[in-house]
């Protein structure tokens, strides 16, 4: 299961579609994401930092606070300039710039961090 957390539903759908055949769940704010985490821990999270309500950093803090979610890889998908910021302590494995990324970058992240290559190419 992959979570996509973005307050822009169109961008969230673009990311979800790029995940190919994977099981994807879209959430438009951090509160909904926290609620979803109570139901199950995802294999990967695509997260925008700028969210309506609590921001992406709030969710990152929440994730590292619990043992079961602390190891979930998080890919930041944002328009913010995060160059030079080390977010690895938050479980962030990659930062994608929304204005430059391509669907192939999303697929690469799914393959790299979840290892579900077969489902995507199907």
């Amino acid at each position: 299961m992959i979570y996509v957390v973005d307050s822009d539903p169109i961008m969230a759908e673009c990311v979800a579609r790029a995940c190919g055949g994977c099981d994807v769940r879209i959430m438009t704010d951090a509160v909904a994401a926290v609620q979803a985490l109570a139901e199950g821990v995802p294999d990967l999270i695509f997260l925008e930092i700028m969210l309506v309500g609590p921001d992406g950093f709030t969710l990152l803090n929440e994730l590292v606070s619990y043992e079961d979610t602390a190891k979930v890889p998080v890919v930041i998908v944002t328009g913010l300039d995060l160059a030079g910021r080390d977010l690895s302590d938050y479980g962030v494995v990659k930062v994608l710039d929304k204005s430059k990324m391509k669907p192939a970058d999303i697929r690469w992240c799914v393959e790299r961090f979840t290892g579900v290559k077969e489902e995507i190419s199907a």
Binding site: I10, M11, C14, K98, M101, P103
Partner: peptide, 17 residues
């Protein structure tokens, strides 16, 4: 303006896929 433009670009890329 930046985010709507980024979204438009993603839509165009998705269309191509």
């Amino acid at each position: 303006l930046k985010m709507p433009l980024a979204t438009l670009r993603q839509l165009a890329l998705m269309l191509g896929e």
